[in-house]
Design a protein around this nucleic acid. Structure first.
Lengths: 171, 171
DNA sequence: ATCTCAGAGTTGAAAATTCAACTAATTGAC
DNA sequence: GTCAATTAGTTGAATTTTCAACTCTGAGAT
């Protein structure tokens, strides 16, 4: 019926062609460079890392500027341990306050302080300018959207494949 | 002559629109997830990190499986310090040997050992399968190429903007 | 020749992240 | 009700990365 498929053992490697390889390398190097420069800009101008900044953004999007630790971890796809450490530092710096969750006694709610809000407002300018200058504005708009589709597909796939990522990644 | 442009102070922030923002977040979360899973796969199957694996790949591409430390750093856009540390660990693990560069007495040449080669051969299967499964094969081919264009543009821009990245990033 | 400056690489301490083990609270099965 | 399994979060040590300071060599000017 259908033409015979080229023989390929299950364990045989399907290598990337030259273009696929080049684009994969562009992804690694480009994202290294990009994350690096954005992190540096935030640190120099406002003394926060990108991870810390992103946590502030997540908090700012809720009505009461509060999130459970696990929600932060999940939305950023960071390990719970990492979030604990990062939030601890931010609490020490006065950007976040932590208190026990009302309903679930196991839970902890992280709430952005006024100082955290002020920092976010200031840092947002720096960050958005950087994201534009180094990423959004230098890409063809259609290409940028294509990139978004690809990265969404990556997340969807990996998250779906691993219903309980926690076990695998210590989250 | 030309219609007056909408007024915008130099320091006013041009925010991202909803779609741009969503795609930016997809990039951050997706690349976190992707790098994470690939790193984990390599570690579990072969006991090397992605950074170490990438160094082996770079070395394998030269005729004599040798590169100067600075060349490794530049091609991966890692700091020189980071490369020193990583190569030191790999040397301890017997994957790389270091010796003084012949021409330039300041230089150091990193050479992949046979053990390093064997590891690379084995790990390449794992890695390529992962890159396909989690990235290349799940993306529309045109979107994947668009992503490559974007990330190449990012690198080109950042590298060009900073002739001596060394100063800025301690390389 | 010498002097300064730039380049290559290393070092060790500080900061961030991962890893494995842990406590405490909730859920669900019986 | 009770006990096992799950979920939330933390902890501290190990690993990795960054940061700043440092040595040593090479290059260019005078």
């Amino acid at each position: 019926m259908t033409p015979r498929l080229p023989p390929m053992a299950a364990d045989e490697t399907r290598w990337l062609d030259a273009a696929q390889q080049a684009n994969w390398r562009a992804f690694i190097v480009g994202s290294t460079l990009l994350m690096d420069v954005l992190d540096r800009e935030l640190r120099q101008a406002h003394g926060v890392s990108m991870a810390e900044y992103e946590i502030l953004v997540r908090l700012s999007e809720t009505p009461d500027r509060t999130l459970r630790m696990a929600q932060i971890a999940e939305s950023m796809q960071h390990s719970r341990s990492r979030v604990t450490h990062t939030v601890s530092r931010m609490e020490k710096a006065g950007l976040i306050s932590r208190c026990a969750a009302s309903e679930d006694k196991r839970g902890v709610e992280a709430k952005m302080t006024d100082a955290g809000w002020d920092l976010l407002v200031a840092a947002a300018h720096t960050h958005v300018a950087g994201v534009r200058a180094h990423f959004v504005d230098i890409a063809d708009p259609e290409d940028y959207e294509a990139m978004g589709r690809v990265m969404n597909a990556v997340s969807d796939r990996l998250v779906a494949e691993n219903p309980t990522f926690d076990d695998i990644r210590g989250r």
